[in-house]
Design a protein around this nucleic acid. Structure first.
Length: 417
RNA sequence: GUGGGCGUAGCUCAGCUAGGUAGAGCAUCGGACUGUGGCUCCGAUGGUCGGGGGUUCAAAUCCCCUCGUCCACCCCA
């Protein structure tokens, strides 16, 4: 038997309906705030990700799906969405359009990783990028849109973590500060953190080992060395969130895994998942497009992990999506079967959601199935009804049954919905 | 990349310790009730015991390899 590749999955009904509903909701919310969809390739030149995401990051280091095409060009399945959008901005000269531009994308990303709960090698992200605005209002708008989306999906227990990473010029100083602060207690850190201290000191800050967290508590927050401008920027974002009533918590130890972030960074985490609790990550990346050879365009954005989002969807939302009222049209006998699709066409045109029984089941078996599949009602079309030009409609929940003409069914259905 | 758990029917699992004819529940389909569901009873369908190799008269069971899956680490969505 041929099996799907490791780390991928098949989305089957009825769960696929949840994905559709989530995406529909995201499109509606994003669109209401002036965003339009952008679709970029699922693979790009490898160099794009090396230069944007950062050479020292784990993503580039060990998680990329990289291959050569027949002409020897190195291509990589996109591990995240922002780089492709930035590339498209430059290549299509979007700078020449009036901006800012709000672009969203929904699609698969790929990272070569060991499987774990809430983590897949092909996973879907819903991302929004706001390009061409350096105002704190832009960051606040993104957080607001996120909050609106999550609220509409029924989440009420998510936490937004916010931090200021400072400007790129501040980073060497801060790394130095971290090293100096922790030099004395180096031996007490976990082995990973000792390595991180050399390679990427910022990462020590969000280590999950309890003993490390105690030690790291002594490290001053980034804001102590962050530029005055970056501090003012993030404070302005926070003020705006307060004004909007969008809750958040300052997390001075929040570090993101991509090199291009500066100033505002944030994560949305769920208290329900232990390890892979991050549902969404984002931040500001004012240097990304110029670093890739484009004009100096400020940008800010986020990406939601759709797989995790769907996994954690509140029951209320699920019930609403999966509880669709459907009618089961059951023809009995050859003459009735010949009529079934014609009725189905007329009724669906009038707004009925139905399913035609095609297998020739007995009425008993059909009712049994209707009960199991959660149909709201069954339309019975047998010889008696056919002769009388009627159809019998049976409601499953109440066991009440009435006979009516086929033309009356849509109105009856609408009245019961 | 590192460390551990688990692979037997569509699903959840028993059987493995002491090798000897592959089982149960649920699900599916049908019947009892020949055009009226949920409960009950009866029956049927369904398995290369993840795959390969080895030991043995004989392997789901013991040994080796491999693949898959789950959990944790790393890191991230």
């Amino acid at each position: 038997m041929i099996q799907r590749p490791r780390g991928t999955r098949d989305l089957l009904p009825p769960e696929s309906r949840l994905w559709q509903a989530v995406e529909q909701t995201a499109r509606a919310v994003f669109g209401a705030f002036g965003a339009d969809e952008v679709r970029t390739p699922a693979f790009e030149p490898t160099e794009l990700f090396v230069r944007s995401v950062g050479e020292t990051t784990d993503i580039v280091h060990k998680e990329m799906y990289t291959f050569e095409d027949r002409k020897g060009r190195s291509l990589t399945l996109r591990p995240e969405g922002t780089a492709g959008v930035a590339r498209a901005w430059i290549e299509n000269r979007l700078h020449d359009r009036s901006h800012p531009l709000r672009l969203y994308y929904i699609g698969p990303m790929f990272r070569y990783e060991r499987m774990q709960a809430g983590r897949y090698r092909q996973f879907s992200q819903i991302g929004l990028e706001l390009l061409g605005a350096d105002s704190p209002l832009a960051d606040a708008e993104l957080l607001l849109v996120l909050h609106e989306l999550f609220t509409r999906l029924g989440f009420d227990d998510l936490q937004v973590h916010l931090n200021n990473l400072g400007d790129p010029e501040d980073r060497p100083r801060y790394q130095q500060l971290v090293r100096e602060t922790l030099a004395a207690s180096r031996e007490a850190l976990c082995s990973d953190c000792q390595r991180r201290l050399d390679e990427n000191p910022l990462r020590v800050l969000d280590c999950k080992v309890p003993s490390c967290q105690v030690i790291v508590a002594d490290v001053p927050p980034v804001s102590t060395v962050a530029s005055e401008a970056s501090r003012a920027h993030v404070v302005a974002v926070e003020d705006q969130l307060d004004r909007l009533g969008v809750p958040f918590v300052r997390n001075p130890r929040l570090v993101r895994g991509l090199d291009y972030y500066l100033r505002t960074v944030f994560e949305v985490v769920s208290p329900k998942l232990g390890t892979n609790a991050v549902l969404c990550g984002g931040g500001r990346y004012d240097r990304l497009i110029s670093d890739l050879g484009g004009p100096a365009v400020p940008g800010s954005g986020f990406a939601i992990g759709e797989d995790r989002l769907v996994d954690l969807l509140p029951d209320g939302f699920k019930v609403r999506v999966l509880g669709l009222r459907r009618l089961y049209l059951v023809p009995l006998g050859g003459a009735a079967r010949a009529e079934a699709l014609r009725l189905a066409r007329d009724w669906t045109r009038a707004g009925v959601v139905l399913e035609v029984e095609l297998t020739g089941r007995s009425l008993k078996a059909a009712l049994k199935r209707a009960d199991k599949e959660g149909f709201a009602a069954v339309a019975i079309l047998g010889d008696d009804e056919l002769a009388a030009g009627t159809v019998a409609i049976r409601e499953l929940a109440t066991s009440s049954q009435e006979v009516m003409s086929p033309a009356e069914v849509p109105a009856w259905w609408a009245g019961r919905s």
